[in-house]
């Protein structure tokens, strides 16, 4: 290494140490299972596409618009949901996704709009969210005479299966990013 390269490397090291990190606020997005906290995730992810490559339901997506997040994956629960196969966590080369057990996943929290939910509004019988939930009675239970769903966000992993199952006429459940 010549002198100029050495000086350059030293200058870079000093700049890296002095300049405060994460001037920009981290975006609120649903990240794949096992993702590091917002901020740390964007630093670690190299956008290699491996997680999206192995996702059997193709819910791991990459944004297409011009933005700094264009190379980081997010979850799109519009059509399908995460089935907690945990393969994405096994392939990440930079530990942006940590290897977890399915029960430890925390993708997001469910938000139920009761005014759109069929049992809550008395429009009919529906227990789809309860039936598809991988952790029934813990993450969601059915209450009252109309068997309406009651979510327990602290026990929910945020896989989005309930969002996927919720009838198109209702669309009462949305998984929201962690705050």
């Amino acid at each position: 290494m010549n002198r100029r390269a050495l000086v350059g490397a030293l200058a870079a090291a000093v700049t890296l140490a002095v300049v405060p990190r994460r001037v920009r606020a981290a975006p609120k997005k649903l990240r794949p299972p096992g993702a590091l906290p917002a901020g740390a995730f964007e630093e670690a992810c190299i956008g290699c596409f491996r997680c999206a490559e192995v996702c059997p339901t193709k819910v791991i997506r990459f944004p297409s618009a011009f933005s700094l997040d264009v190379a980081t994956p997010y979850l799109d629960f519009e059509d399908r949901a995460c089935v907690l196969c945990m393969k994405c966590t096994q392939v990440c080369p930079t530990d942006a996704l940590l290897k977890l057990a399915a029960e430890q996943v925390k993708v997001g929290v469910p938000k139920l709009t009761r005014s759109q939910c069929l049992p809550w509004t008395g429009q009919g019988v529906c227990r789809l969210c309860y039936q598809v939930c991988p952790y029934p009675d813990r993450a969601v239970e059915v209450v009252g005479p109309q068997k309406a769903p009651l979510f327990h966000p602290e026990a929910c992993v945020g896989c989005g299966l309930c969002e996927e199952a919720c009838p198109d006429t209702a669309r009462a459940i949305v998984i929201e990013p962690l705050s």
Partner: peptide, 9 residues
Amino acid sequence: VLGVQVVPL
């Protein structure tokens, strides 16, 4: 500085 990977962009 930005806390994102610029290289993949």
